[in-house]
Amino acid sequence: MIEVQNLSKSYQGNNVLENINVKFERGGITAIVGGNGAGKSTLLSIISQLEEADTGHVLFDGQNIGSISRELLAKHLSILRQDNHLVGRLTVRDLVSFGRYPYSKGRLTQEDQNHVDTALRFLDLESLQHRYLDALSGGQRQRAFVAMVMCQDTDYVLLDEPLNNLDMKHSVAMMKMIRRLADEQNRTVLIVIHDINFAAAYADRILALKQGKLICHDCPKTIMNSETLELIFDTPVKVEEHDGRPLAVYYR
């Protein structure tokens, strides 16, 4: 379980996160939603120790996460951020293989290769595995990065906007894949996502942030009403029933 206690963070006087208290139970998908600049990415970065909090702390299974060595943490928690640009020339398979670094330190064993194969298959990248990343579309590259994170074989997987650059088909495929990660492999997934309907359709819980404050953390059914959504996103939203599920309509 990941527990966030009294977490605050500010950049040059602007409060990005204010006194956040939240628990992420083991298992399932939690979608983090909120407007631009709500602090979603910062929250993920602090949980995964990419950034430091000003005050408060993060507990990982009851232990202060800062006291866990990075080497060990990399076997339990992985993160994929939005800005993934590479300088060098690598193939898809090379990139995915980096996910095994915490275990094999670069000397891949047969078991590592099996993990890489599984991840490539899971993300439908087998036919592209020997292609160079700079010769791929943004969406294909995004899938390669997700495959790398999957290969890291961690209990917790943190994804910052994995639907970035993906078209409709691949967005749905990606969300289904994340759902399978949670259901079949029993991973705990935290994902930052912009599309509230994707969040409602696939996540078990939704955590909403607004200007660095926690608005709510609950199951989609409770959150998907126009009152709550308008509070979160500051824009008129109608919620309609579609196939027995709530659907937010906010386009006009």
Binding site: L50, E71, L86, V87, G88, Y101, V149, Q152
Partner: peptide, 16 residues
């Protein structure tokens, strides 16, 4: 090789 991926990736893969 991992360092060349960038700071974020390196940290995420457990490198100090």
């Amino acid at each position: 090789d991992v360092i060349a991926l960038g700071r974020t990736q390196a940290l995420s893969l457990g490198i100090d």
